[in-house]
Write a protein that binds this DNA or RNA. Sequence first.
RNA 1: GGCGCCGUCGCCAAGUGGUAAGGCAGAGGUCUGCAAAACCUCCAUCCCCGGUUCAAAUCCGGGCGGCGCCUCCA
Length: 470
Amino acid sequence: MRLFNTLTRQLEEFAPSRDNTVRMYTCGLTVYARGHIGNFRTFVCMDVLRRALKYVGGWHMHHVVNFTDVDDKTIAGAQQEGVSLREYTDRYIAAFHEDAAILGLEPVEDMPRATDPANLEAMGNMIKALDERGHTYVSEGSVYFKISTMPDYGKLARLHHEGMQAGARVDADEYAKDDARDFVLWKATKPGEPTWDVGVGPGRPGWHIECSAMALRLLGEAPIDIHAGGVDLIFPHHENEIAQSECATGRQFSRFWVHAEHLLVDDKKMSKSLGNVYSPKDIVDHGHRVSALRYLLLSSHYRKQLNFTWSGLAQAEESLTRLTDFLARLQSLPPGEAHPAVVERVDAARQAFDSALGDDLNTAAGLAAMFDLVRVINGAIDARDVSSTDATAITDLFTHFDSVLGVISLRRAEDETPPVPVEEIEQLVEARKDARRRRDFGEADRIRKDLEARGILLEDGPQGTRWKRA
RNA sequence: GGCGCCGUCGCCAAGUGGUAAGGCAGAGGUCUGCAAAACCUCCAUCCCCGGUUCAAAUCCGGGCGGCGCCUCCA
C-alpha cells in the first residue's frame, strides 16, 4: 500500500513496523462546539484509511482518536454557561458520537480525552523527561519548550525561520517567551481556570503535549506508524508534537504523517460570519441524507481541496442511488451456474478497486471501478447472462467495496426507516397491483403519485413492484 | 515577504510521458399500460504562451487565474 508521507513529501510503501498491527493516531476534535462537515471530511478520510489498511492491506489496527477537552475555548465556553468544564465538553463529545454514527465512522480502539488522569500524568512525565534533557524553561510559572535546543525543528512543515519575519503575525501570547517560536508545554494556573498538579507546577496542558503523551501512552514505544489530521495541523501542532516527542524519547515520533486537505463551502472557508458552517445534522435538516455526504467526501481525493455545494450533494445522491438500484436488481435473478464472463469481470473489478485504494487512497478511481462493473453487469442482466450464483459473487464483492467505503451500508441503514411505514407501503403496493390487474390505471397512478409525494418511489418490473426511498 | 498546492466536458472527478476513466446533467433510441429503472448511441484534447521529446493533459520555463500555510483552526 502506497501512502503520501508529509514528512518526505513523497509516496512511500507503507507497512506497519511490528506485529502486523498499524499503530495510528488521528488528531480529533476540540470539543467546544459541534463538529462541522469540514472536521468530518478529515475524519471520514481517516476512517477510509483505517478501513483500507484493514480490509485491503490486511493488517490489524490500533487506532487512537482523541478529544481535546481543555483549552482556551472550552474553558471560556464552560465559564460562560456556568457549568463545569467536564459537563460542557461532555455535550460535544456526545454530539460527536452521534454525528460519527450517522456518517458511518467505524469505532476506533481508543478515544482518550486530555483531562483523564492517566493522560495528564503521561503529559507530566513527558515534560519531566524534556526538562531532564534540557529542552525546557519556566517563565511566569509556565513551562516552555526551547526550540533552539532542537536542531532539526521544522522538518515537517519545512518553514524557514528567515522568511517568517516579514509578513508573519507574531504570536501575541499572554505568556512571556524567550523566543517567539517557543511554545508552551504547561500553562500556569490562572484564577478561575481548572488546574492540575502533575509534578511540573500547577496548571493545565499546552495544546500540543496531550497528543504526544496520549499517542505514546496508548500506542507504545516510538515510532508509531501513522499520525494523521487536517492540513492546518501541520504547523504548528504536528511540528511541535514532533519536537516534544522526539526530544523526550530520543526516537522518531511517527514514521508516516498523513494530512487531509480542507473542505470549502461555496469556494470559501467555512466561518460563522459567513453562515456556512454545517454539521452533519444540518445536512439532514436540509432534507438530504448523510450517506450522500459521505459519498461526496469519497468522490474526490483526500489531498485535494473539496468544494462543498448543495448541488454537488444532490449529484452525489443520484450517483449513490445508481449503486443501490443495481444491488436491488441483483436480488431477483434466476438460479443457475456461474457465468465465466461474469466471474472474470468480478475479479477484474476487485483488482481495480484494491489497487486504486492501495494507491494513496484513490477513492475516486475506486468508485469508477465499481461503476464500470455496474454498467457491464446491468447489460449482462438485460441479456439474461447473469444467474443468482453470479449475483452472490457480485454482492460479496460489493460487501468488500463497502467494507472500505462504508457508504452503501449507511444508505441501507437509512432505508430501514422510510418516511412511510413499511406495512402501509406494502398494503398500497398490493392495492395498486389489484388496480393494475383490473386495468384501472387511473387508480394505480394515483397510488403511485400519492406515495411519491410522501417520499416513496415505486418501480414496476418483471418480478413485480419494488419500492424505494426518494 | 517566505513556503506550498491547484487549474481536465455544463457540474463533480480520475489519469502525471504513449495518444483523455467514472458519476451527475443533457440529446436520440429500445423496453414499459404510463412511469421509473436498465441498456444502446451521442456529448472534451486537458487555462494561455514557449521549450524538451518520435510522442506531453502529463516534463521544463514564463504568464494568467484560484487556494492554503507562516496565528486558534479538520
